[in-house]
Amino acid sequence: GKKITDLRVIDLKSELKRRNLDITGVKTVLISRLKQAIEEEGGDPDNIEL
């Protein structure tokens, strides 16, 4: 897996889109939004599978 902070903006957006989440904002905003979603799913933001 990869750390969420290692993802490119395009990867962050595709992961957010897959979860029907907002894809607007700067990279730090996208990271925190995706991180929260992954944690709510019970996942580990430091080890995500794309």
Rank of each mutant, 00 (worst) to 15 (best):
G1K: 15
G1A: 12
G1R: 01
G1Y: 15
G1F: 15
K2R: 05
K2W: 07
K2Y: 05
K2C: 11
K2L: 09
K2G: 02
K3R: 09
K3N: 04
K3M: 07
K3P: 07
K3F: 06
K3Y: 02
K3S: 09
I4H: 04
I4T: 03
I4P: 01
I4C: 06
I4R: 01
I4M: 11
T5H: 07
T5C: 12
T5A: 13
T5Y: 12
T5S: 14
D6C: 09
D6L: 06
D6W: 04
L7N: 10
L7S: 01
L7Q: 10
L7G: 02
L7R: 02
R8Q: 04
R8M: 12
R8P: 11
V9C: 13
V9N: 05
I10V: 14
I10S: 05
I10T: 11
I10M: 14
I10P: 15
I10D: 01
I10L: 07
D11I: 00
D11G: 01
D11H: 10
D11V: 01
D11W: 00
D11F: 15
L12T: 00
L12K: 00
L12V: 07
L12C: 04
K13C: 09
K13I: 15
K13F: 07
K13R: 10
S14I: 10
S14M: 13
S14T: 13
S14R: 10
S14Y: 10
E15P: 00
E15H: 04
E15L: 11
E15I: 00
E15C: 02
L16D: 05
L16R: 00
L16N: 00
L16I: 00
L16C: 04
K17P: 00
K17I: 13
K17S: 13
K17T: 04
R18S: 13
R19P: 02
R19I: 00
R19T: 01
N20W: 06
N20S: 12
N20C: 05
N20I: 00
L21R: 07
L21Y: 07
L21Q: 04
L21N: 03
L21S: 06
D22T: 06
D22L: 06
D22Q: 04
D22I: 06
D22R: 06
D22M: 06
D22C: 03
I23W: 09
I23G: 10
T24F: 08
T24L: 06
T24H: 02
G25D: 02
V26R: 13
V26A: 15
V26F: 14
V26Y: 08
V26K: 08
K27F: 03
K27G: 09
K27S: 08
K27R: 06
K27P: 09
K27V: 05
K27D: 09
T28G: 12
T28M: 15
T28A: 13
T28Q: 11
V29M: 14
V29W: 01
V29D: 14
V29Y: 04
V29T: 15
V29A: 13
L30A: 05
L30K: 06
L30P: 04
L30Y: 01
L30N: 04
I31A: 14
I31L: 12
I31N: 04
I31Q: 13
I31F: 08
I31M: 15
I31G: 05
I31E: 13
S32L: 13
S32C: 06
S32A: 14
R33Y: 00
R33H: 01
R33W: 00
R33F: 00
R33E: 01
R33A: 05
R33N: 05
L34C: 01
L34V: 05
L34M: 05
L34G: 03
L34N: 06
K35I: 06
K35T: 13
K35G: 06
K35M: 05
Q36W: 13
Q36A: 10
Q36P: 02
I38W: 03
I38A: 01
I38Y: 05
I38Q: 05
I38C: 10
E39K: 10
E39H: 15
E39T: 11
E39R: 15
E39F: 06
E40L: 13
E40R: 14
E40S: 14
E40N: 13
E40K: 11
E41W: 00
E41P: 01
E41A: 08
G42M: 08
G42A: 07
G42P: 03
G42V: 04
G43P: 07
G43N: 09
G43D: 08
G43S: 08
D44Q: 07
D44E: 05
D44T: 09
D44P: 04
P45R: 04
P45I: 10
P45D: 03
D46E: 13
D46F: 11
D46R: 08
D46A: 11
D46Q: 12
D46V: 07
N47E: 10
N47I: 08
N47H: 10
I48P: 08
I48Y: 14
I48W: 05
I48A: 03
E49M: 07
E49L: 11
E49K: 09
E49W: 08
E49C: 08
E49A: 09
E49H: 12
L50A: 15
L50K: 01
L50G: 10
L50E: 02
